[in-house]
């Protein structure tokens, strides 16, 4: 039997189909496979960021120049984005973020919990439409809907990739 297609492959395929040329990120273990696929793709440029808000201004500039971008981050980075999301809202920029969640499903590290729990509310407070994926079978349809919505309707959209999808990070087997 063939190994089932990994959901990160679905996202990479969607990025290509929707002409995402810039992929900026602050890394998370949950994004590793997708980042590797994008890095190996000559049609995409990876832009490592020092803080997540950089990716918002980068995406706005790219769109002004006719290119599409996506931002990958973990939920702790959403808090770093708050004021910069004003740029997206004020100018009606399309914006697509894929957020791997921490601080929810079986989290071991209590320091991840406050931002993880606040992530959907913080995004919505800044006008970002929030989609959530909890199982691998729904990744393709959800990310596709989010991408279409962002770029066709000029709105900010974040897809939250649940910890139940990613698996909880283990700390020495604890």
């Amino acid at each position: 039997m063939d190994t089932p297609r990994h959901w990160t492959t679905d996202i990479h395929t969607l990025f290509k189909a929707h002409h995402i040329a810039l992929v900026s990120y602050v890394p998370d273990a949950g994004h590793t496979r997708l980042l590797n696929l994008c890095r190996a793709d000559e049609g995409m440029r990876l832009v490592p960021l020092t803080t997540e808000e950089e990716g918002i201004a980068l995406a706005a500039g790219a769109y002004l120049g006719g290119q599409r971008a996506a931002l990958l981050m973990q939920s702790s980075g959403v808090g770093n984005c708050i004021n910069m999301l004003s740029l997206v809202k004020t100018c009606s920029f399309p914006f697509l973020a894929l957020v791997t969640m921490r601080g929810e499903w079986g989290e071991f590290n209590p320091w991840q919990v406050p931002m993880g729990q606040a992530t959907p509310d913080v995004l919505r407070a800044m006008g970002v439409t929030v989609y959530r994926v909890t199982d691998a079978a729904a990744v393709h349809s959800t990310v596709e809907a989010a991408t279409r919505f962002a770029f066709a309707s000029y709105v900010p959209v974040a897809v939250l990739l649940s910890q139940s999808l990613l698996g909880s990070k283990s700390f020495g087997g604890k």
Binding site: V47, A57, L58, A60, G61, L64, A69, L87
Partner: peptide, 22 residues
């Protein structure tokens, strides 16, 4: 010209996005 009235700290990154796209 793209003058910013907010988004403090974002000007250089917006310029990077433009430069890469154009």
């Amino acid at each position: 010209d793209f003058p910013l009235w907010g988004a403090m700290g974002g000007a250089a990154m917006l310029g990077l996005g433009l430069a890469l796209a154009q």
